[in-house]
């Protein structure tokens, strides 16, 4: 057994340390950025989920289109009786844009100042 331990080389330690370091690497990145996330759902099903900082145009169902731009979600197209959602914006965690007739909801997730929100 001792002779086997003697076959250990410097390179082995290097490999082990490298593997451990590479294993822990992602932890540093994920902890650094608790960035807000934009979520869009249709009929309760999530169809879009990405960092709020990413600009995107999302078609939600057949009647609505949302735009995520400059850290803000807004509804840019909606075929519904009232068109209320067209004036809504969601910027901070907890805020939402909702089109009730077409059952579409978009909101911002992330570390906000609010512990919880009830509607």
């Amino acid at each position: 057994m001792r002779s086997i331990l003697r076959s250990l080389r410097v390179g082995d330690a290097v490999v082990v340390v490298l593997a451990l370091a590479l294993a822990l690497l992602p932890l540093f990145f994920t902890q650094a950025g608790e960035r807000p996330i934009a979520v869009i759902s249709v009929d309760g099903e999530t169809i879009y989920r990405a960092p709020l900082s990413e600009n995107a145009m999302v078609q939600a169902g057949s009647k609505n289109a949302l735009m995520i731009r400059g850290g803000e979600i807004s509804m840019i197209e909606a075929q519904c009786p009232d068109g209320l959602c067209l004036g809504m914006h969601a910027k901070k965690p907890g805020e939402s844009v909702i089109c009730l007739p077409n059952r579409i909801a978009a909101w911002v997730e992330g570390e906000g100042e609010l512990d919880g929100v009830s509607y």
Partner: peptide, 9 residues
């Protein structure tokens, strides 16, 4: 420089 331990890891 290195043994089968390192290769295996």
């Amino acid at each position: 420089s290195v043994s089968l331990f390192g290769v295996s890891v």
